[in-house]
Amino acid sequence: MDSYDIMLYVGYLLIGLGALAAVLMPLIKSFDNPQSLLKMGAGLIGVAALFFIAYSIASDEVLPKYAVAPFNLTPSASKAVGGILFTTYILSGLALVGIAVTEVNKLIK
Rank of each mutant, 00 (worst) to 15 (best):
I90D: 05
L14A: 13
K65I: 13
L63Y: 09
M25H: 05
N33L: 03
A19C: 11
D32K: 15
L13Y: 03
A22R: 14
E103V: 15
G93S: 12
N33R: 15
L17P: 06
G18F: 09
S30P: 00
Q35R: 10
L38W: 10
G98D: 06
N33F: 02
A21M: 11
L96N: 02
I45S: 06
N33S: 10
M25S: 08
S56K: 12
K65P: 06
S30T: 09
M1H: 05
L73T: 12
G98N: 08
L44Q: 02
S30F: 04
F86I: 14
M7L: 14
A80D: 04
M40D: 01
A58P: 14
K39P: 00
F52K: 07
I53K: 08
G41N: 11
L50D: 03
L13A: 13
Y4T: 11
A54E: 08
I99W: 03
S76C: 01
A42S: 09
A49T: 13
L96D: 01
A49Y: 09
L94S: 04
V68N: 02
S92H: 08
L37N: 04
Y55R: 14
A42T: 03
L24E: 05
Y9C: 01
K29P: 00
S56D: 12
L91M: 15
N72A: 02
L37W: 05
A67K: 12
V62N: 07
I28A: 12
D2S: 10
A69S: 15
D2V: 01
S92K: 09
V101R: 09
L38E: 08
L17T: 08
T87G: 05
V81P: 00
I90W: 05
K106G: 00
S56L: 11
K79N: 06
T87W: 01
A48F: 07
F71G: 00
M7V: 07
T88W: 07
I108Y: 02
D2I: 02
Y89S: 10
G82W: 03
M40A: 14
I90C: 11
A95P: 00
F86K: 10
A80E: 04
L13D: 05
D32E: 09
G82R: 02
Y55Q: 07
A19E: 01
V68E: 10
G93C: 11
S59E: 09
G41A: 14
I99L: 13
A77P: 00
K106I: 05
F31Q: 06
Y4F: 10
A95Q: 03
G83I: 07
P34S: 03
F86C: 06
I57Q: 10
G98H: 07
A100E: 13
A42N: 06
I84R: 01
E61A: 05
T87Y: 05
K79R: 15
S76D: 15
L8M: 12
Y55F: 15
S78Q: 14
E103T: 07
P34D: 06
G93F: 13
G43N: 11
S59D: 15
A21Y: 09
G83M: 05
G98K: 11
T74P: 01
L85K: 12
L44G: 08
G46M: 10
A69R: 08
D60S: 15
S3M: 12
